[in-house]
Computed example of a mutant assay.
Amino acid sequence: MPRPAVGWWRGLALCLPLLVVGCATHLSTSDAPAITQSGPRPDVDFRRLSPRPYTPPDWPEALEARVLLPDTPGEARRPAALLVHGGGWQRRTPDDMTAIAERLARRGYVTINVAYRFAPEYRFPAQLEDLEQAVAWIHERAEAWRIDTARLVGVGYSSGAHLVSLLALTGESGRLAAVLAGGLPSDLMKFDDGRLVVEFIGGTRAEKPQAYRQASPITHVDADAPPHFLFHGRWDTLVPVDHATDFHAALEAHGVVSELYLQHYRGHFTSFLLRDGAIEAGLAFLDRQLHDD
């Protein structure tokens, strides 16, 4: 067989990085252009506290939070971020969110990166109750850590995104000011009774339809929903992209500020692994919502 032309290989070598980096479609319902990002700002140092329990002694399982405190001068209150990892509601650890937590801390956010109870041993709404407890715990420490509780946001990916969005829409301990969510399963009724969802809820859609609706963020969208920044891979087969597009449309229909950052050539896992552009756009979104100049 004849050898391929050298130019063909060079062309492929040039195209592969572009495919990996990819590009994105960025849709916005806010007045600010979706592509606008906050200007350069100096990073701040931060202090890492030792992991500490955020649940009371009588909680069904002891759960820890990892806290980063930015070294911002003065006595002014700072924004804070509650971070929740993914893993199908039954695996992974807060380690997955460490890099994002550090990025937020360098921008002046107090970050609280939490563990939560896993299915199938603990079923919905146990995980949501854990996050409610985490929010109450943060409020109790707001003065000591100089947190402005009116500027507490939620950040998560996959099942973590599901939990922070659900918390933001239904939370009783004080609603979140905004959400940055990637790979969000927004409507559990869309899944074909897959193992992870069935074990999370404790039954199939036919057996527990009300629980499926109650556990679906899209069910709770109304005009009081907090702003959401959503990022999602167009090639996601685990959580198909219509979870993001339909949820964005529901927020838009209720007049809620929302941005949708669709990552081309990305599946569920590569959307998180190659997330830098989405996270930077999401942080700019959070800055605008919190008026944090």
Rank of each mutant, 00 (worst) to 15 (best):
L180K: 00
A215N: 01
R175Q: 13
F229G: 09
A244F: 07
F229I: 07
L176Q: 06
T245G: 09
V179D: 01
L196R: 13
P226H: 13
D236R: 09
I218M: 06
E199V: 08
P226I: 05
A225Y: 02
Q210R: 13
I218C: 03
T237C: 12
T219Y: 11
T219L: 07
P185N: 07
L176I: 09
T245S: 14
G202E: 12
F231E: 02
F191Q: 05
I218Y: 04
P185Q: 04
E207I: 10
G182F: 01
D224F: 07
G174C: 09
V198P: 01
G233W: 03
P217R: 05
H228L: 13
A225I: 03
H228I: 12
P226Y: 07
G202T: 07
Q214V: 11
D192R: 14
F191E: 04
P227H: 06
R205Y: 09
L230M: 12
P240S: 05
A211E: 14
V241M: 11
F229Y: 13
Y212Q: 07
R234L: 15
Q214G: 13
L230F: 07
G233F: 03
P209F: 05
A244M: 06
A181D: 04
D222W: 02
F191H: 04
D236F: 11
H232W: 00
S216L: 03
L230S: 08
A223E: 11
L238P: 08
V241I: 14
A177F: 00
S216G: 04
H243D: 08
A225G: 04
D192W: 09
R213N: 07
R195K: 14
D193F: 08
G202W: 09
L184W: 00
L180G: 00
H228A: 15
F229S: 05
T219V: 10
F231Q: 06
V179W: 01
V239F: 12
G174K: 05
E199W: 11
G174W: 03
T237D: 15
V198M: 10
V241W: 06
P217E: 10
S216Y: 06
W235Q: 14
A181E: 01
V179L: 02
L176W: 07
H232C: 01
L184I: 00
R205I: 13
K190S: 14
A223W: 00
E207Y: 09
A244R: 02
V179T: 02
H220S: 03
F200S: 08
A178F: 00
K208S: 08
T219A: 13
H220K: 08
P227F: 02
A206D: 15
D187R: 11
D242Y: 12
H243R: 06
T219H: 13
S186D: 10
Q210K: 13
L238I: 14
